[in-house]
Simulated assay, not measured.
Amino acid sequence: MGLRWKEDSRPQRHGWAPGECVHGRCVGLLCRELEDSSFVGAKRAIICADCAYAMPDPVPVDRVQNVVAQLILSNKDKWQQARERPQLLGWFVGQAMKVLGGQADPEEVFEKVMRSVERGAN
Rank of each mutant, 00 (worst) to 15 (best):
H14S: 09
G15Y: 07
W16Y: 05
A17L: 08
A17T: 03
E20R: 13
C21T: 14
C21H: 12
V22E: 11
H23E: 07
G24Q: 14
R25T: 14
C26G: 08
C26D: 05
V27S: 12
V27D: 07
G28Y: 04
L29Q: 09
C31H: 10
C31W: 02
L34P: 05
E35L: 06
D36G: 01
S38W: 01
V40T: 03
G41Q: 07
G41H: 01
G41L: 03
R44F: 08
I46T: 15
I47F: 09
I47M: 12
A49G: 02
D50A: 13
D50S: 13
A52K: 01
A52E: 01
A52I: 09
P56E: 09
D57Q: 09
D57I: 02
P58K: 02
P58C: 05
P58F: 05
P60V: 06
P60D: 00
R63P: 03
V64R: 04
V68M: 00
A69L: 10
A69D: 10
A69H: 07
L71Y: 02
S74D: 07
S74E: 11
N75S: 12
N75A: 07
K76T: 15
D77I: 13
W79C: 06
W79I: 11
W79K: 06
Q81Y: 04
Q81W: 10
Q81L: 14
A82T: 09
A82C: 07
R83C: 15
R83Y: 06
R85V: 15
P86W: 04
L88M: 14
G90F: 08
G90Y: 10
W91Q: 08
W91I: 10
G94F: 02
Q95W: 02
V99H: 03
L100V: 04
G101N: 09
G102D: 05
G102S: 07
A104V: 10
D105N: 13
D105G: 02
P106V: 05
E108G: 00
